[in-house]
Design a protein around this nucleic acid. Structure first.
Lengths: 235, 235
DNA sequence: AATTATCAATCGTTCCATGGATTAAATGAC
DNA sequence: GTCATTTAATCCATGGAACGATTGATAATT
C-alpha cells in the first residue's frame, strides 16, 4: 500500500508549455505531492523516469515526435513499474483502448475539472485504475466491438464442428506444426491412418493442404477438445 | 436516448429464490421500472427475453445448469440488443473480464449497497457502461496482464526482424496459405527464387517447413511490412 | 577514384523426402 | 446399418535441401 509519510513523486510530460505550467502549479498546491520533473519532450521524460523513478507519470498522449503511446511502450521496456496517467484532449475510444492495453493506470480528459486530476493521482497511487464513467464507456465501445468481430469469425458456419474426436486430436497436432510421422508416433497409430484423418479434415474444412487447415483452425477459434494426452505427456 | 415517458422494462434471472424476491421488491419500489419477468432458470429467462424484449436484464453469473456467461452468449445469438447487467457474489477478475468481453453492460456485486443496483440500471439504460471503480480495477488486472503476455511473445528476440523486405513479402504470402507456384506468379519471379527466399526464411526463423514458419509468424505478431502490392492489385 | 567486401535479390539444376489423392477394406460401437 | 477408426498400397505433386552462380546496390578501404 501507499506510504503516507512520504510525498508522492510525480513527473509531468506535456509538449504544451502552458498546460505543463498549469498542471505543475495545480499539483504543487497539494502538499502531499512532489513534482520531481516536468518536461515538454518525451525522450527527455524517459531519462527523467530512469533517474527519478517517480510514483506517477502524468503524460499527454498527443505529442509530436514521440507520442504518448510509444512512450508508454518505452517505459515498459525499461522494466520500471511507474504508474502512467494519460492526459488527453479527446475521448477517442480507440486511443483509450490502446493506452489502457499498453498498461496506463488512468486516463483523464483535459476538459475535466482539475479536481479530477487529483482524484486520478490519488486513485492510481492507491493501486487502482482511474477511468471516469464516460471513458469507461468509450473503452468498452471499442473493446466489446473488437470481441464481437472476433466471435463472428469463430462462430457462423463453423466447419470445425463437423470434425470427429480423433480428427480434432490430429488437427491439434497439425496446428503444432508436426509432420505425419511424428503424429503417428504420438497417437500410436500408423502413418497411413494419420493421412486418412488429415484427408478427411481437408475435405471437411474445404482446404487442400495442412497450412490452410492450420490457418482455418486458428482463425476460427479452434480449441483442441481432448487435451488429455498433452497433460499426460507433461507429467 | 432513453424515453422517459415509458417505464423501463426489467427482467430478473437468479437461481436463488431469496435474491430474486429481494431484487424484485427493491426494483418494484421504483415507479419508473416495470419488472416484466423474474425467473430462477436461465433457459426460461431466454424465452422470456424473446417474448418481452426487456430493456435491461439483471442476471446472476453463478447458476447451475447454464451459467451467466453462457446465457449472455445465447442472448447474443438471438440478435436481441438487450442490456445485460451482471450480478455476482465475487469480484473475480477473470469472471469480470469474460462477462464484459461477451458484451455485458454493467457488473454489480451482491455485497454492494442496493442503491448501486439502481445506479447501474440508470447508467446502463442511458447507454453507458456501469462498472464500479473496484471492478474496473479488477477488470484491468486481467486485461493488462493478458496484453502483457501477448507483447512478451511478440517482443523479445524476435527473429522476424532479421527478415529482408522481400522475405517479408514472401512470408506474408506464406501466411495466406499460398504455394510456391502462386507466390512466384504474384511476385512475378521464378519459382526457384521463391524457394530460395523461403529457405532463407526457414533458417532465420529456425524452422524447417512452411507450417512452422507460418505458426512462428502468427504467434510473434507478424505484420506484412509492404502491403503496397496488395493495394495496387485491389485498384 | 578505384578496390574490395557485403548483402539482397535473382535464377538454375539435381535429388530426395514429405505431403496428399485415390481406392479399398476391416473392425467395433451405437 | 451407419459412422468412426483403423490399415494398406499405389502414385504423383509439392515441398524442401544442397550447391552454385549472376546482378546490382551500398558501404568500407585503400
Amino acid at each position: 500500500m501507499r506510504d503516507f509519510t512520504k510525498k508522492l513523486r510525480v513527473l509531468l510530460i506535456d509538449d504544451n508549455a502552458n498546460h505543463l505550467r498549469g498542471i505543475k502549479e495545480l499539483i504543487s498546491l497539494e502538499t502531499s505531492y512532489n513534482v520531481v520533473g516536468a518536461t515538454r519532450n518525451a525522450n527527455l521524460g524517459l531519462s527523467l523516469i530512469k533517474k527519478y523513478r517517480p510514483d506517477i507519470v502524468l503524460m499527454d498522449v498527443n505529442m509530436p515526435e514521440k507520442d504518448g503511446l510509444q512512450t508508454i511502450q518505452s517505459i515498459n521496456k525499461l522494466g520500471i513499474s511507474t504508474n502512467v496517467v494519460i492526459l488527453s484532449g479527446y475521448d477517442d475510444s480507440d486511443l483509450i483502448y490502446r493506452a489502457m492495453k499498453l498498461g496506463a493506470r488512468g486516463y483523464v480528459l483535459k476538459t475535466m475539472a482539475s479536481s479530477k486530476l487529483i482524484d486520478a493521482i490519488e486513485t492510481v497511487a492507491d493501486g487502482k485504475i482511474y477511468l471516469p464513467s464516460v471513458l469507461t464507456t468509450r473503452f468498452f465501445e471499442y473493446f466489446q466491438n473488437a470481441a464481437k468481430e472476433e466471435s463472428k469469425v469463430s462462430a457462423g458456419e463453423n466447419l470445425l464442428t463437423t470434425l470427429t474426436g480423433r480428427e480434432n486430436e490430429v488437427l491439434d497436432l497439425l496446428t503444432q506444426g508436426i509432420n505425419y510421422k511424428s503424429i503417428a508416433q504420438k497417437l500410436i497409430i500408423s502413418e497411413t491412418t494419420v493421412k486418412t484423418h488429415v484427408n478427411n479434415i481437408f475435405q471437411k474444412l474445404q482446404v487442400n493442404d495442412r497450412t490452410n487447415a492450420v490457418l482455418y483452425a486458428l482463425t476460427h477459434g479452434f480449441k483442441p477438445s481432448s487435451t488429455m494426452q498433452q497433460e499426460m505427456a507433461a507429467a
